[in-house]
Design a binder for these strands. Structure first.
Lengths: 194, 194, 194, 194
DNA sequence: CATGAATGAGCATTCATTCAT
DNA sequence: AATGAATGAATGCTCATTCAT
């Protein structure tokens, strides 16, 4: 069981996103996802351990590269300030690019049980590491205040971005999220700048 | 049905907090709450419409005054900066004072369905209003930058505080949350200060 | 318990008829009957053994004299044919006179469990005895065919009257039931007349 | 849901008849029916929408053809009198042939709520239509009195047959019901014959 | 690989009845 | 006598998961 790969693996994940986004987490039964994916209920279990595994995998597949993409794009920048701007922009861009996914990750998946949420947090660890690297780099370069508490600053960045996105999703994604990137970036810089 | 009042009303709510905190949202059956409260299952329904009503009431009773208390305490301060410090401190204090409640509000209740979460958000509206008042006051007094975007700043404050508390809860509340109040306050002030 | 008499006894029975007629058998909770009667739930149990006892008593009180009244009125007639006409007329009259009661006895009370219905049948026994007496009298007087099977004839009379009344109730009692008395009487006589 | 077909569909209906007949309507829990049918509780819901659907289907399956069978058998007769005799005989025969079913339809199913009973009545409508056709035919052929009221006559036939069967069921089906067909037929004919 | 029929544990809620006041 | 708050047993239905085909 749980043999990943094969085209059905992605079919099922995409079906899950679609079903959860349109019916909500609690109405996303395995049979509904199977139907949407065009496979039999049992087939799901050839690709995933159990229902929770679909959701965790969904998160990994869709958000796993999230950090890598940002990290790569940032590498070519020299200034920490620009790096942070890129990060904020890309965070917003990636979620605005797939509104179904935004609904799923910001609202629906948070209704999952604690275990699932813990696994999701694991995936975020790389994001947190990236944030701390950025903060350290900023401090070492003398751009950020020397005694900035990395954990706190990281929580401020992530908390702010997450709250901004969640508010946007709750307003039905009907305004331009990316337009908020620069103002948010400015506010964060003001907080951290030496 | 749903005649609030009577000591049992509070007994049941306290039992719900305890049961949810120790068993988790999805393992908090009505019968378990009743047993913990020392009443019969049916008695629950003399005080609450249904299970969701227990949770909404729990939130209203425990968090409803949250904002009022902060607002009153803040009224006696003159400086906006001090007001914000009080707010951050009290936010942390109230949650650290009842760790069970912190677990319930930061982790467990967020697993509830969309309807319940919408009701919970309604209760938060007053908090957001208070935050915006504070921001406006700060701008008018010339303490905060004149073109500060209220919505963004409010999202930064709430997002940061919420993320800080959630991280603390996920680390089993084992360090002093209140100690973070001043550093958080400093960071926020840096971001907003003219 | 079950001490009959006292004005509340009748209050409760009348309330039961009203509640059952307007809300239906399955929505006639004891608490609803108590409220309608203007007494506390517990008071019901000072006058009745249990819920079933309310219904049986209701039937006894309202239908118990049914047969006696008919029997008395019939006594003064000499012809069996006229006696049967009186019986049919009075059967229809008594039910048309209290439509609430007609709904309760023809439709709602038949949803009760088998035990209750058996008790109700006991009350009807006197009616069946009266019918058989009439049939025997008719046969002895030579009006009715000599080899008329009393049981069958009794079932025909009761089955027909009951079906006619039930159809009338199901049509919302909106036509004149008593007008059917003579035609029904004629048909029955044709069947039995020597 | 509710995909009729498959042997289990009939297994479940037969189990329902058996369970209701032996335990009574109010003690016929879904789990009891499932156990009797030799399937899991959940399997019931692959074949029926809900519990009420089991009972309605039971009635349709077992009584739905009742009228058709009588109608077909009657078609080959020429005399109205013989047709009526066939009808009475077959009515009794079909119920005597399955005593469990007789108990269920004459006693238990009448305890069901109004909705279910309305659905049951719909099924009976064809029976009433058949009766009226027979009466009209008899009048046109000059066998029955010209001014016979169809509705009344129909109520007399149905009321009588139903009462005869119900009495038989309440006497535990311990005498021969079919033996009553001819006497009942004679009585009815006497009532209607010109 | 794929199917989908079958499984069966799990739970919120109602309401007749009691009994301390 | 009268109250009404408290009781707690009882049950239809869902849905993640399995396994024979």
């Amino acid at each position: 069981m749980g043999k990943k790969k094969g085209p059905k693996y992605n079919q099922i994940i995409d079906a899950a996103v679609k079903v959860i986004a349109s019916h909500g987490y609690h109405q996303a039964q395995v049979s509904k996802i199977a139907k949407e994916a065009g496979v039999a209920d049992g087939t799901i279990y050839l690709y995933f351990e159990n229902k929770e595994d679909i959701l965790t995998s969904l998160f990994k597949e869709k958000m796993g590269h999230f950090v890598e993409i940002i990290r790569e794009r940032i590498a070519s920048e020299t200034s920490v300030e620009d790096k942070l701007l890129i990060l904020v922009k890309m965070h917003f861009e990636q979620l605005q690019a797939d509104k179904h996914l935004a609904i799923v990750t910001q609202l629906e998946l948070r209704q999952s049980n604690k275990d699932l949420r813990l696994k999701i947090n694991t995936i975020f660890k790389n994001y947190l590491i990236l944030l701390e690297e950025l903060l350290t780099e900023g401090k070492e370069a003398g751009y950020f205040i020397a005694d900035l508490d990395n954990r706190l600053a990281r929580q401020m960045i992530f908390g702010t971005l997450d709250e901004v996105v969640t508010n946007w999703v709750m307003k039905d994604c009907k305004y331009d999220l990316i337009a908020s990137a620069e103002p948010v970036h400015n506010l964060l810089l003001r907080a951290f700048r030496a």
